[in-house]
Design a protein around this nucleic acid. Structure first.
Length: 254
DNA sequence: ATGGTCGTGTGACGA
């Protein structure tokens, strides 16, 4: 089973990219982030034979799951804050497994209220994932985590030193998730540097491979034995008018 | 050291 996560930076601007990706790389389940609009092109995506569910808001954020198999929606928001209206979380169930798609807050500028929101969001996420682990519910969580886990996950650590994606509190919160027993799937197969999922549009970052690894797939303990591979597909970042992120691809044994 | 690039929606803000 092929599961993919991709921050598309606007579904309106990137619909043709997503359709091309689906046709060329045939994911079984595709998690996309940063839809950036209220409207979701459900009909055009489902004309391919896939099922979809989207969580959207005006202008910002937004996440969706596109799946070959029909699925049940478990949660359309992260629990524990009724006033949080940002479209950043979707949890579904397919077979016995929960699949969670997140667009974790960026948090810049830090420090400040946006960074406080990010850290609070990560605590709420910890609570939810801890609950699933305790209940022995197998899950896969993918998405744009907006977390650079280690120095080797960026080209120039000095540049990111005080950034919300690389600050010590952010790395600690991410480490707490891993300490639940979750596996950073990509690092099981590749411990090297210069492996990125995002390159800024500015200053020739893509051409210079000045990127960061911020899109991740974490597996719950019960899913560990099913992990077959996890790789970054750089091709879509090189297409015309690309997203600034590229897909990360996970293969699980049936 | 500075500015640089996209997308939304048509302003300024977010990334």
């Amino acid at each position: 089973m092929k599961i993919v996560s991709w921050n598309v930076n606007s579904i309106k601007a990137r619909l043709d990219h997503v359709l091309k990706y689906m046709d060329e790389f045939k994911p079984d389940l595709l998690m996309i982030q940063e839809l950036k609009g209220l409207e979701f092109p459900k009909n055009k995506l489902e004309a391919t034979g896939y099922y979809t569910h989207a969580i959207t808001q005006k202008s910002y954020n937004g996440v969706a799951i596109i799946s070959k198999e029909p699925f049940e929606v478990i949660l359309d928001a992260l629990p524990e804050d009724q006033d949080d209206e940002q479209a950043r979380y979707l949890e579904i169930k397919l077979g016995d497994v929960h699949y969670i798609n997140i667009y974790l807050p960026n948090g810049n500028p830090a420090p400040g209220p946006k960074y406080e929101y990010k850290l609070a969001w990560m605590e709420r996420l910890y609570t939810r994932l801890n609950g699933l682990v305790e209940d022995n519910i197998p899950f896969v969580i993918g998405g744009d985590f907006n977390v650079i886990p280690e120095e080797k996950d960026c080209a120039s650590p000095q540049e990111w030193k005080d950034d919300a994606l690389f600050r010590i509190e952010t790395k600690k919160a991410f480490r707490s998730l891993l300490n639940l027993g979750l596996i950073d799937s990509f690092r099981v197969f590749n411990t090297g540097d210069k492996n990125y999922t995002f390159w800024d549009y500015q200053a020739g970052a893509w051409q210079k491979n000045n990127g960061i690894r911020i899109d991740h797939f974490l597996l719950s303990p019960l899913m560990a034995d099913r992990l077959e591979s996890c790789t970054i597909n750089k091709a879509p970042r090189g297409w015309e008018k690309p997203s600034d992120h590229t897909p990360i691809e996970l293969h699980l044994a049936a």
